[in-house]
């Protein structure tokens, strides 16, 4: 029984939001915005793949993946948010200078250090590119530490593509292959599903780590395509989405069988969760 609650067990930012101010705001697509938030007093450092609980005062709170992680607690945090509900809509509608409350960092991170010296393939579907952007930025910053690096990215239409300017920049250093589900002129790029890009992506199956995020069905087909290339389940990493209310493993909402996605995830290997994802309504 606890006789005291040391601060490391009840850290600042875990239970009570810290105020952040909207410093930059950019509309990426029809329903998605990227916000740069600066901590009012203290913020928190974030590892690639971790997320934050973002609170709009008087409206509510949702988990949001961090697309630009602060390395130090005082650094600004970059969030890419799709306006799909009341809270995410209110976050996206936040004006410059508006105040939001952030809790975090929540969850585990992508095992990018373990992927060092090998190849990296990033497979993203839709808003799934947001939590993977830190992986891409990391490989760009540490380009010499990795072998072949490719980004395979699928979206609904060309207008739904995130970070289009950055995709072009990335192309000068790493392979970037983009496809859309449907297109009209003047799109000259690929039309088709993103798992299809896996077959021709440049990587050594025995030396690659795959980082995958997108709708669960998209991830399922991506896993199949990666397996066909001979990538072992242990090196196929997935980031999952579940309902989350507390973000720190206390509220129960994010359960996926034996695991709590906010506490043990959101990043898992296919070896860890493949069987669980195969169970309907688990």
């Amino acid at each position: 029984m606890a006789t005291a609650t040391p601060s490391e067990l009840h850290p600042v930012g875990a239970f009570v939001p810290l105020p952040f101010r909207v410093a930059e705001r950019r509309q990426d697509t029809g329903d998605t915005w990227t916000l740069t938030l600066e901590p009012e007093e203290s913020g928190f450092a974030v590892e690639p793949g971790q997320f934050a609980m973002v609170h709009v005062f008087g409206v509510g709170e949702v988990p949001i993946s961090v697309s630009g992680p602060p390395e130090r607690p005082g650094d600004p945090i970059v969030l890419t948010v799709r306006a799909v509900g009341a809270v995410s809509g209110a976050i996206c509608a936040s004006e410059l200078g508006a105040l939001l409350g952030l809790r975090g960092p929540c969850g585990n991170s992508w095992p990018i250090a373990e992927a060092t010296a090998g190849d990296v393939v990033v497979v993203a579907g839709g808003i799934g590119l947001a939590p993977l952007r830190p992986v891409v930025l990391h490989t760009l910053a540490q380009r010499d530490s990795y072998g072949a690096v490719s980004v395979l990215y699928g979206a609904r239409t060309p207008a739904d593509l995130l970070y289009t300017d950055q995709l072009e920049e990335w192309r000068s250093t790493i392979a970037v292959d983009v496809t859309v589900d449907a297109a009209e002129p003047p799109w000259k790029g690929k039309v088709g599903v993103v798992p299809k890009l896996v077959a021709t992506a440049e990587f050594r199956p025995e030396a690659v780590t795959a980082f995958v995020c997108g709708p669960e069905v998209m991830m399922h087909f991506t896993v199949q395509a990666l397996r066909e290339r001979g990538v072992p389940d242990e090196r196929i990493m997935l980031s999952l989405e579940r309902d989350m209310r507390c973000g720190i493993g206390l509220c129960g909402h994010c359960q996926l069988g034996p695991t709590l996605v906010c506490r043990d995830g959101p990043v898992y290997s296919q070896a860890d969760v493949g069987a669980l994802l195969g169970v309907r309504e688990l």
Binding site: V84, G192, V217
Partner: peptide, 18 residues
Amino acid sequence: LQWTRLRLFDLYGNGHSV
């Protein structure tokens, strides 16, 4: 056909939201 069916799901579509 499988790839085409996958696109019929409209995975990145807006679905139902509150």
